[in-house]
Amino acid sequence: MNKLHPGDFAPECILLDQDNQLVNLIDYLGKKVLMYFYPKAMTPSCTIQACNLRDHIESFKKFNVEILGISIDTPDKLLRFSEKEMLDFTLLSDKEHVVSNNFGVWGEKKFMGKKYYGIHRTTFLINELGKIEKIFKNFKVEIHHLIILKYLQ
């Protein structure tokens, strides 16, 4: 896994969103971007994380922060997730896990004694110039949004 650090430029990110439209991270220059990687749409922890971000989106907007969620789910599944949970931010499909790998969040995981590859839940705050400002990991999904909002203050 690549190791990114605060101060590094964010790797290229061009992916399809839940509406099958290409989204390019470079289009967000001039704004802060909260890019959060999550394992799988419509799972309990990922739903809690997404809904907390949705419920506090106005607080993020006060800090000029756009939210992008990234998983390896297909655009169709992301659309179902977005509609079901009434998410009002962009979800991106990294089916081939290229962007996840470039951000260093794709790797081996263990669950109940089994090893597999997947996304390690990680959030990057990218500044207006496209540089990584802060990396958040090893957090409880229930307070993910609060940790980031506290940092932004």
Score class of each variant (00 low, 15 high):
18 Q>H: 15
101 N>M: 10
86 M>R: 15
42 M>Q: 10
98 V>P: 03
37 F>T: 01
57 I>N: 01
49 Q>D: 11
76 D>P: 02
117 Y>A: 09
29 L>G: 07
107 G>A: 11
80 R>D: 15
47 T>R: 11
104 G>A: 08
35 M>V: 07
104 G>F: 06
22 L>Q: 14
49 Q>A: 08
18 Q>I: 02
54 R>C: 03
80 R>C: 11
58 E>Q: 14
27 D>Q: 13
86 M>H: 14
20 N>S: 14
120 H>V: 13
70 I>E: 00
22 L>M: 14
56 H>S: 13
68 L>C: 04
101 N>A: 13
49 Q>Y: 04
68 L>V: 02
27 D>C: 06
82 S>I: 03
82 S>T: 13
109 K>N: 09
77 K>V: 02
116 Y>T: 12
28 Y>H: 11
61 K>Y: 12
55 D>K: 05
65 V>D: 02
117 Y>F: 15
40 K>P: 02
119 I>A: 02
112 M>L: 15
87 L>G: 07
108 E>N: 13
113 G>M: 12
64 N>T: 03
94 D>G: 10
99 V>F: 06
94 D>C: 12
81 F>K: 00
47 T>W: 06
49 Q>C: 08
118 G>L: 04
94 D>N: 05
22 L>R: 12
33 V>E: 03
38 Y>F: 11
83 E>H: 05
120 H>R: 11
36 Y>M: 05
91 L>S: 02
112 M>F: 14
26 I>K: 15
117 Y>M: 15
23 V>S: 07
117 Y>Q: 13
94 D>L: 12
38 Y>W: 01
63 F>S: 14
112 M>K: 15
100 S>F: 04
79 L>P: 00
97 H>I: 04
26 I>H: 13
106 W>V: 03
82 S>P: 10
70 I>K: 00
67 I>R: 01
115 K>H: 14
86 M>V: 12
95 K>L: 12
116 Y>H: 11
90 T>M: 06
18 Q>M: 06
74 T>P: 00
42 M>F: 08
69 G>R: 10
37 F>V: 07
54 R>L: 04
62 K>L: 15
21 Q>G: 06
31 K>V: 06
55 D>N: 14
80 R>W: 05
20 N>M: 09
37 F>K: 00
79 L>W: 02
77 K>Y: 02
108 E>R: 13
36 Y>I: 05
81 F>I: 00
25 L>E: 09
80 R>M: 12
20 N>E: 13
68 L>F: 08
44 P>Y: 06
31 K>Q: 10
117 Y>E: 12
110 K>C: 14
25 L>T: 06
33 V>T: 07
54 R>H: 02
42 M>H: 03
119 I>Y: 03
84 K>M: 11
27 D>T: 10
51 C>Y: 09
30 G>Q: 05
80 R>P: 02
28 Y>R: 03
48 I>Y: 09
85 E>I: 01
56 H>F: 10
